[in-house]
């Protein structure tokens, strides 16, 4: 009980300190005003102005049409696919990206550098190229599709194909954010844990994973954000069947083809808010984890 209270107080005083620093704005580094002004201007020009224009455009439709555009069953089906597949893909990437980063950082083996460079390929490849390549491989009669088809697994032109494409493009985000964190994680910590009697599983769960978690979470949210916004690669492999394999970005394009700018902006606003909500949630989780770790230590 006492311990608990003590902890709370600690946390509170920690918070106070942070706030005091932020309010007083005293820093040994000069140029705070200039750099803050620059940051605000730059962010406004590059990010805020276009987003504001988007909101203004969607408002031009009026509430009734806005609501009708975003609640259409076809659009709702596309939200489910887009966000569902993006979340799943980001989760898959978090698991396998961590394993890849681990192998690349912790082990020395021939070809490691080449593998390391390969991880960036989904970044560099034009998304349309990845989409076409994946479709060619997974289509019936393609290299992999040929073997999957007799098993009754269809990848290309199904929601599964969307998942494959999103996993492909999201992988580098996790690997590249986890790698530096892993490199910073000194081997001595594991050795210390082992010498204090921790088993391998305990070391992994109690020492390594907590230290990596913030980086992993960042990688996860980057992969998620990218997957939600992805268009180029998905469009080739999805098959684009209404209600089944249409992603939300495609519906935005479809609206634009009909010169329905307001409807397109309305759907875009929903995506924007949902993405913002998701990223906000991830950040809040990260903040909470950080705090708990600091307090716990």
């Amino acid at each position: 009980m006492q311990n608990e209270e003590c902890r709370m107080q600690n946390a509170k005083s920690g918070e106070w300190q942070v706030m005091r620093i932020a309010l007083k704005q005293h820093s040994v580094l000069p140029g705070f005003g200039v750099s803050l002004g620059y940051t605000m201007t730059y962010l406004s020009l590059v990010v805020l102005v276009p987003l504001a224009a988007l909101f203004a455009r969607s408002a031009s439709a009026g509430w009734g049409r806005f609501w009708a555009a975003i609640c259409d069953p076809r659009v709702v089906a596309s939200y489910r696919l887009t966000f569902g597949a993006a979340l799943l893909a980001a989760l898959i990437n978090a698991v396998f990206g961590l394993i890849i980063a681990w192998s690349l950082v912790r082990y020395r083996f021939p070809g490691r550098r080449i593998l390391d460079a390969l991880v960036d390929l989904p970044f560099a490849l034009p998304t349309a190229v990845s989409g076409i390549a994946l479709t060619a491989i997974y289509a019936q009669g393609g290299w992999l599709g040929r073997w999957l088809e007799p098993l009754g697994i269809k990848v290309a032109f199904t929601p599964l194909g969307v998942l494959v494409a999103l996993t492909f493009i999201g992988l580098p985000f996790v690997v590249r954010t986890v790698q530096p964190a892993l490199e910073d994680l000194e081997k001595e910590m594991e050795e210390a844990a082992a010498s204090l009697g921790a088993g391998r599983w305990q070391t992994l769960r109690r020492v390594i994973l907590p230290a990596l978690f913030p980086a992993l979470l960042t990688g996860f949210s980057l992969a998620l954000a990218r997957a939600i916004g992805e268009y180029g690669s998905v469009i080739f492999i999805a098959g684009n069947m209404p209600m089944k394999s249409e992603i939300t970005s495609l519906l935005i394009i479809t609206k634009l083809e009909q010169y329905d700018y307001a409807g397109a902006a309305a759907i875009a606003v929903v995506m924007l808010l949902a993405s913002f909500g998701l990223l906000f949630g991830v950040n809040a989780l990260q903040w909470w984890v950080n705090r708990r770790q600091r307090v716990g230590a």
């Binding site: 009669g141 290309a156 098959g239 684009n240 495609l250």
Partner: peptide, 16 residues
């Protein structure tokens, strides 16, 4: 498969 444009469909039919 509903491709978004004519060339995409040509590829789907002819090459895939």
């Amino acid at each position: 498969v509903l491709d978004s444009g004519a060339r995409g469909s040509t590829t789907t039919f002819a090459q895939r």
